[in-house]
Amino acid sequence: MKELWELYISFFRIGILTFGGGLAMLPMLKYELVEKRSWITENTLLDCYAIGQCTPGIIAVNTATFVGYKRKGISGGIIATLGMVSPSLLIITVVAVFLQALIGEPLVQHALVGIRGGVCGLMLNTVYMLAKKSLVNPFCIAVCAGTFLLAFFTKLPTVLIIVLAGAVGVLCDRVIGGAK
């Protein structure tokens, strides 16, 4: 019971102290899990992280589940995940309540229009970074271009497009062994 509580608290702390998830979380995970608690080794952490990236879902949550499971089995996996999402639930709910109360103010309206412009700039940057990281060979560029056309010009469900892309990856691996 005490160990489960410690798992919850540790991941709660990781959740509340990380802005942004993904790679930004790695130093915090390392400090809390490897250096402070010595629950796992740094190599296991990197393994968890690699698995977290090639499974569906939020990378931070996947890592939390994996570490929690390694430590305390299924209940550990669930408790660590709940610890990880608790700060978001609390903070976002408070922010959402406040924003809803303020939304009618003209000042807030102007600020929000500005922020929406800023979000576009930030998201363009996200796409640019992702493209630099993921479009490393002609195969990737072809899949990306094909997906773009499908998603932009057809009404195919997103899920179907993702399944198709996975199938294309396997097919290319079988045929030319070239999907790297």
Partner: peptide, 17 residues
């Protein structure tokens, strides 16, 4: 690895759209 090699560039395109 093959599945994710296909999905990763596709996700980039989905986010771009």
């Amino acid at each position: 690895k093959a599945v994710f090699a296909g999905i990763r560039p596709a996700v980039t395109a989905l986010i771009a759209v």
